[in-house]
């Protein structure tokens, strides 16, 4: 078997080449109760940092998405302490200063770009911080659409910004105030309120559980 040596939290293990970091850790005997979720690159739970022999860079990636390499030094970061001030979306306006007022530390960004280098999603993280600084909420929302809240940028930032919480607020403001309402959804909601589908819905509501489950399983799924 083709094997490589990796160092997990400083201890060396021989593991099969081609495994992801996450599988290599399990192969080495770790039982993951934190720092592991979807295993598909979506949940952001498996933030991991590593170094390679002879390379000064500190790499950051998702353990479930990254194959092991020989001589990797690995540590997981199952949780990122990050500050999220309380807010009520309905009391906020989608204006220039809103993000900065809640996250004043945005102004500490020195444009080092370390966050961008850390992002496993290859987002332009620094550009998003800069957009937040100048109050361009829509731009922040668009640049961070694929953020998985892994927190790696936040752990690396010398300005101690809690990036993913800023992104979340920007996307909420964008969704609530800046994005045009989908007309067909509103129409459908009105139709439902006007009981256009009353017969069908009432039939489901009065179904026996077993019948309902069977109907659910037999439903047509769009390809």
């Amino acid at each position: 078997m083709n094997e490589v040596t990796v160092f997990i939290m400083g201890k060396g293990y021989r593991v099969p080449a081609g495994l992801t970091i996450m599988k290599a850790m399990e192969y080495a005997g770790y039982r993951l109760t934190r720092g592991c979720g979807c295993r598909g690159g979506y949940c952001g739970a498996c933030a991991t940092v590593y170094r390679l022999k002879g390379d000064y860079r500190l790499y950051a990636d998702l353990a479930c998405q990254t194959p092991v390499q020989d001589g990797m030094y690995i540590a997981q970061l199952p949780f990122t302490p990050a500050e999220r001030p309380p807010y009520a979306l309905q009391d906020l306006a989608p204006e220039g200063q809103t993000l900065l007022a809640l996250f004043p530390e945005l102004a500490r960004c020195v444009a080092c770009n370390t966050c961008t280098k850390a992002c496993p999603q290859k987002l332009e993280v620094m550009d998003a911080v800069q957009a937040a600084l100048r109050g361009d909420i829509r731009q922040v929302a668009e640049l961070t659409f694929d953020c998985v809240s892994c927190g790696l940028c936040t752990m690396r930032c010398p300005a101690e910004i809690s990036h993913h919480h800023v992104w979340q607020l920007a996307r909420r403001l964008n969704g609530a105030y800046l994005t045009p309402r989908a007309k067909h959804v509103q129409e459908r909601v009105q139709e439902i309120a006007a009981r256009k589908f009353a017969v069908e819905l009432d039939a489901f509501m009065s179904m026996d559980r077993d019948v309902l489950v069977a109907a659910y399983k037999a439903r047509e799924i769009e390809a």
Partner: peptide, 20 residues
């Protein structure tokens, strides 16, 4: 472009503040 850095540092050796 990114923020100019606004208040520039008066420290002589504050290289980081010039990165932006």
């Amino acid at each position: 472009w990114n923020c100019c850095g606004t208040v520039y540092s008066l420290a002589q050796d504050d290289l980081m503040r010039h990165v932006g």
